[in-house]
Write a protein that binds this DNA or RNA. Structure first.
Lengths: 116, 116
DNA sequence: GACATATATAGCGAAAACGCTATATTGTGA
DNA sequence: TCACAATATAGCGTTTTCGCTATATATGTC
């Protein structure tokens, strides 16, 4: 019974959000939604170097977003909790709302050049 | 018609998530869900110093999460887009799922001491 | 034991975030 | 014009990210 009760939702949520605030990590997380994967598979799927992949995975594992299971020399990483899965559901919902045009956000990348 | 089409959802989303990955900023955002507020009100509500408050607001404004409106010497900040509002809805849904016990996440704060 | 495979870890430099103190800017009213 | 109120900005030191290269570790195979 870990007593985390005095830590507010904001502390917890912000920590998770921060950990997901990286494009490659988001891609990894989404990839893992279909189930556990080895480091090698993740690496090839996302297109990252081996150390970078490993570092992102470890980063998220330390923050309890991922866990892993070992089998011989292979490491299978997977989503650590239903909460993360719930969050991913939310993300997908937001994504759809964006892509359908239901909502939009103006110029998250204002540095984007037009016609160059 | 800004052409952001070649920038994937992951880039956009991660940028927003990163910006929200801070407890005080989350609090601010949630506070603004009820409508626009002056810097002073936000500052008092969240309990931050004036410069810190201003900096967080500017940080989020630069990332197009907030916008402001000026009236005399007062600055009214408010949520910049429906997408952000949608995201907040998702957050609330996740929050409820956490608090109701429907989902949980184990030890996001492992450094938390027990009985000390 | 030699070697390959799969993955983790260390170390490093550049960049960004963070919180703080001090100061500048701008509008308002006497 | 002077002073005040509301807010922004600058500058600084510390910490955290980030991506990279190089190396270590552990397991399986011959």
């Amino acid at each position: 019974m870990t007593e985390v009760s005095h830590i507010s939702f904001f502390e917890v949520a912000s920590k998770v959000l921060k950990a997901l605030g990286h494009p490659e990590r988001l891609r990894i997380i989404e990839y893992l939604q279909t189930g556990e994967q080895t480091v090698g598979n993740i690496q090839r799927e996302i297109g990252l170097s081996q150390p970078i992949t490993s570092q992102h995975l470890r980063y998220m594992q330390r923050r309890n977003i991922l866990t892993y299971r070992r089998e011989g020399t292979k490491y299978y990483y997977f989503l650590a909790s239903d909460f993360i899965r719930k969050l991913l559901d939310c993300m997908r919902s937001c994504r759809l709302s964006l892509e359908s045009g239901e909502t939009q956000l103006l110029d998250i990348f204002p540095e984007t050049k037009r016609s160059e």
